[in-house]
Each structure stands twice: as C-alpha cells, then as structure tokens.
C-alpha cells in the first residue's frame, strides 16, 4: 500500500469510525462506510488539509470510493 493510501485510510477510520479492515479500495463512503452527504464533504476537506491541495468541486463529485480518493490524490499530490 502506498503512503498516500495509508494516510487516506487513517483519515477515513478516524472520521467515519469504521474498522481498518472495512476500508477497502472498492468501499463506497456512502453505501459501505455509513457516510452521509455531509460526512463526504468533510472527508474531502480532510484530504485537502492532509495533503495540502485544493480539490475542485467538479472533481470532488467523482470521488465516491476509497480507491477513487487514493487514485485522485496519487495523481495530484506533488
């Protein structure tokens, strides 16, 4: 697992209160990890803070699973 993936996992565990084992690449924030729309907005903000980047709203809308978040961050975090 990449360093980015590990940090993403820790944020999700912390914010959504789920077990590490549940945070698989396919897991959907809303369908599998119990997040509602506000939790999802907060998660995106946490990613922005953790990785010191800005994720535009139209990009954020496409981040619905753990794997999508990791892929976006791996591509955009310098």
């Amino acid at each position: 697992m990449s360093e980015i993936a590990e940090r993403v996992k820790q944020i999700i565990v912390e914010k959504l209160g789920v077990e590490e084992s549940e945070v698989t690449p396919e897991a959907s924030f809303t369908n599998d990890l119990g997040a509602d729309s506000l939790d999802t907005v907060e998660l995106i903000m946490e990613f922005e803070k953790e990785f010191n980047i800005s994720i535009p709203d139209d990009q954020a809308e496409n981040i619905g699973t753990v794997g999508q978040a990791v892929a976006y961050l791996e591509e955009n975090v310098k």
Binding site: L38, V41, E42, M45, E48, K49
Partner: peptide, 9 residues
C-alpha cells in the same frame, strides 16, 4: 473560506 460542513448544524 474552508468551513466544516458540520459547522452550521
């Protein structure tokens, strides 16, 4: 303007 979505509620 980075406010937490839970700020207002």
């Amino acid at each position: 303007p980075r406010f937490n979505p839970f700020f207002i509620p």
